[in-house]
Amino acid sequence: MRFKLLLIILSSLAFPAVAAGGFSSSSSQATEQAHFKPEEIIFFAKKVEKAMAEKGARVAILARMGRPPAELPEGMHFTHVGFAIYSEITKSDGQKIPGYAIYNLYQKDDKPDVSNLVQDYPVDFFAGVAKLEAGILIPSPELQARLLEVISSPTYQELHDPNYSVIANPFTLGRQNCTEFTLDVINAAIYQTKDINIIKANEKAYFEAQPVNVNPFKLILGSMFSAEVSTSDQPGPPVTATFEKLVSYLHKYDVGSQSLTILP
């Protein structure tokens, strides 16, 4: 018992934000605590939804802040991203209403180093956030149309690698997090391919990853004691994909893409 407690403390020291949850966690997980009143979350989630609708976004990349920014490594701000898709939603009483559904890669509750593809709604997406701030990246109309095709095809599932690492390297295979998966789907749409080798080659050539600015010793401890921290897919200095880097990537190569931040 004392030994287990020691391991938890050490992993928290090594990677505090990871040990406390808040990255690609589903809001239904026990580790995802409510930091705001339900009405605050509901109002904010609807505000985000309406902002995307006002822009006419059929597909947007949505980001949330699962941890306070001060607890995150340098260069990292948002902790989870997913696709927001304008949808026809069928309520449990059969009534059909228009709104956004969110397509996520979430860590499993009982196995944080394994992920699932889960569809939920904006209020679920923001339920456990540490700060009410949303990042929205709206691709160009052409890329939105291509993304709709990919997300509605078997390719979407085929691009998912369930082996999760919170700092997954976007240029290599073997580990994947929500942002790398989002990047892979975006590039499957851009290059109209489901060949992961073509996707990775182009990401290596054109996508700029975020260096993981964490003390190497802390990183070793994190990978030893936190299941969701792995360096197995990091052949050199660790790098990962972030929402901010996705924004830079599309702003550079997808003419007509736009990004905005929503606050309460």
């Binding site: 309406k50 609708a53 006419g56 309520k91 709104g99 679920d124």
Partner: peptide
């Protein structure tokens, strides 16, 4: 611009 429901839906 698109229309979205004023209702809040959840899983």
């Amino acid at each position: 611009p698109l229309h979205v429901t004023d209702e809040t839906v959840t899983v």
